[in-house]
Design a binder for these strands. Structure first.
Lengths: 144, 144
DNA sequence: CCTTGTCGTAACCGATTTGGTTACAGTCGC
DNA sequence: GCGACTGTAACCAAATCGGTTACGACAAGG
């Protein structure tokens, strides 16, 4: 489906920050990029979207870095999804169908209902998992 | 999200064929393209995928065209989705994360669980709507 | 005040996907 | 054999994605 990895990267970043903040150090895009194994600019772009959504904040100047603005248990995957994804899951026709045809004029409202239900359900599911849950999952997996 | 319109187009095509077959005529890519308002080749590509999934069949030669192989009430949107979409909804990292980091090694299994649940739920929802339902929706909307 | 480390962006790149288009060979009923 | 339609290959412009380089903005610490 040509899906992107934005949600995955953003979740990775926030989870990493949650784990790191316990050590008291400052999270920089360079250190995060080490864990994600990508370019620091990619991380900064991601963090920029998360900041626009109010999930993180940045301190500039020397000794700068990033900080979570909420408790990991208060950040759901839906928050992250909304911060980094925009469009709908399924697109309608690229160019409008023939509205003179019953199917052409009726298929879009009909699918609208289905698609809306799908998206509502997706949001409900993403809301059920928090960054703290991911952290717990990782720690639990490490132990057992 | 850069979503594509494949599911929409395929649903449009099948719904159009369901409505058309009541008239007894043969469905051709040209006539379908009129309703979708796109190039007939786009329709043939779509129908080719639907044929590979066993949802339609083609007759070649003179007076050729396409036919549904199942009753519209027996074709769910999940069948259509599977016929025209391939990859997962959410992708993992484009390049693997640092497995030496606890988060890098644990985030993928953790997200795997979430993503699997999301996809299972998506399938459940798509299975709940059939081409016949779309047709009914369109006819009902036309009336009321 | 000036060095230093980091943020914040712009600009560009190659690869891939998407919808669209042209062209043409294959097929078969009439 | 004619004609109509399928089935594909080939190509295109636009958009997206992840990645990369480059550089200005900024502020803390010496």
């Amino acid at each position: 489906m040509s899906a992107n990895s934005r949600l995955t990267i953003a979740a990775h970043v926030l989870t990493w920050m949650s784990m790191d903040q316990q050590g008291g150090r400052v999270a920089t895009s360079d250190r995060i990029a080490e864990s994600v194994q990508t370019n620091p600019v990619v991380i900064r772009r991601c963090l920029g979207e998360l900041r626009a959504a109010g999930l993180v904040e940045a301190r500039r100047g020397a000794g700068a870095g990033w900080r979570l603005t909420r408790e990991p248990a208060d950040v759901t995957l839906l928050d992250v999804y909304r911060a980094v994804e925009d469009g709908p899951l399924f697109a309608m026709h690229a160019t409008p169908p023939n509205l003179g045809c019953p199917v052409g004029s009726g298929i879009r409202p009909a699918l609208d209902g289905v698609y809306a239900g799908v998206e509502a359900n997706l949001q409900k599911q993403l809301r059920a998992t928090t960054i703290a849950d991911l952290l717990d999952d990782i720690n639990g997996r490490k132990m057992g």
